[in-house]
Design a protein around this nucleic acid. Structure first.
Lengths: 144, 144
DNA sequence: CCGTTTTCGGACTCTTTTGTCGGGAATATG
DNA sequence: CATATTCCCGACAAAAGAGTCCGAAAACGG
């Protein structure tokens, strides 16, 4: 898989949060509600989303009417931000064959072909904002 | 990581085997020798390469002067063949967000952008033959 | 036939990822 | 202040990935 499961849950939950707070008016959405729609256990999603709050992507509030919400407007949050917070950026940095000393100077056999594509992939994920994902999502397709 | 560690070891070992048998004259190379150069334990590489023989990519021979070797010439073996044998092709088939019902009909938010890139990646790995990797490898860069 | 070499095959351990659970802290409402 | 709600946090369990190890089987050379 390209992303870890935790990362895909995080992206789906963030997209849902963005969709549920269209005007950026800071409505806090209970994690339980997001978990139901992402179809992952409440506790597990809680653990994952804590990383997003630690990374200053979301903020949270306890108690009745509490929940989580995006700190910045959805059009300012890139998919890569979430990937970086959950999986890290190792995918876009390393050699495809896992060779430590592979570099532009002494490239491994796949070096150039992979570098081009991983940069393109990273650019795509940087360009793509949560707002874009909200826009072209069908409600159905975000649920499992 | 794009590939599992086992998969990167398999690719590196296969490239080495191709390099050591340039004329396709079916020299059997001891796994121990490959393991030293790939810098992975002999036993672990043995386990991995068995999958390549099961997949009819390599053949093996026991006893003195035994070892493993590519069944077909290196120019006829694609990198994707090895990836398929070790990691499977799940990376190139699934939805980037892990949504089971995501399809061309009801695409998830990342569907089109990812499909384009994963197909390009798959094509690249299909076009790239072991012989290509042998050609532009520096000996140094295949070792760890 | 015997000993050596080398793959085969499975059992086993260690680590990471995935997932579950329960108690505590914060917040709102009455 | 009491209670209900909701996130925080750490302990734990299960599954998968990574890696080790050992005995058995095949092949060769004397």
């Amino acid at each position: 898989m390209l992303f870890s499961k935790a990362c895909t849950y995080a992206i789906r939950a963030a997209v849902l949060a963005a969709a549920k707070d269209p005007d950026g008016q800071r409505a806090f959405i209970p994690i339980r509600e997001l978990a139901d729609e992402v179809n992952v256990s409440f506790h597990f999603l809680t653990k994952i989303l804590r990383k997003l709050t630690e990374a200053n992507i979301m903020e949270s509030f306890r108690g009745p009417n509490g929940g989580v919400g995006l700190i910045r407007p959805a059009r300012e949050i890139s998919v890569i931000d979430i990937v970086a917070a959950i999986d890290g950026l190792g995918l876009f940095e390393g050699c495809a064959l896992g060779l430590p000393q592979c570099s532009d100077d002494s490239p491994c056999p796949l070096h150039d072909a992979w570098r081009k594509r991983r940069e393109d992939l990273k650019n795509m994920l940087t360009r793509t904002k949560l707002a874009d994902l909200v826009r072209n999502q069908t409600r159905k397709a975000v649920r499992r």
